[in-house]
């Protein structure tokens, strides 16, 4: 049977998404959050002994029933296409493979965080993480 749908609620908007935030890659290199590229995440995961990158495809985006400030994004995660729903602030950025930061409401993301952002859409493939020793 398919795995159960999980709903994860991340904390409110974290400070590291603000433009200019300094991010340390796995090899020690420092980059600004707005300068991160797909390769930075892939190479960091390759170095990491604990983490691996999964592809998470956006399958559906809905408004939240609890608050207009939130959206529910349904992902199909990894090779097993596990269904996972995440309730996030509409301005919460996800990193899309080959594209960069994207959110349900990029105008709000740019306004609140000054982070350049595109519109997150169904079919986008986002970077997500898994523990290597999970299975």
């Amino acid at each position: 049977p398919p795995p159960p749908s999980n709903t994860v609620v991340p904390p409110s908007l974290p400070p590291y998404f603000i433009k200019g935030s300094i991010i340390q890659l796995a090899d020690g290199e420092l980059k600004r959050v707005e300068d991160l590229k797909t390769e930075d995440f892939i190479q960091s995961a390759e170095i990491s002994s604990e983490l691996k990158i999964d592809s998470s495809t956006v399958e559906r985006i809905e408004g939240s029933h609890t608050s207009p400030n939130f959206a529910v994004v349904q992902f199909s995660v990894g090779e097993h296409r596990a269904q996972v729903s995440v309730e996030v602030l509409v301005e919460y950025p996800f990193f899309v493979f080959g594209q960069g930061w994207s959110s349900c409401c990029p105008d709000r993301t740019t306004q609140l965080l000054e982070l350049p952002c595109t519109k997150l859409s169904v079919g986008d493939v986002c970077i997500s993480l898994t523990l290597k020793n999970l299975r």
């Binding site: 999980n6 300094i22 959050v33 995440f41 995660v77 990193f95 997500s128 993480l129 898994t130 523990l131």
Partner: peptide, 19 residues
């Protein structure tokens, strides 16, 4: 200036129960 590790920017989306 705070420095954040790269993995804090990436969500863990894998379900807790697999297969």
């Amino acid at each position: 200036v705070p420095v954040f590790p790269w993995h804090s920017l990436v969500p863990f989306l894998a379900p807790t129960q697999s297969d």
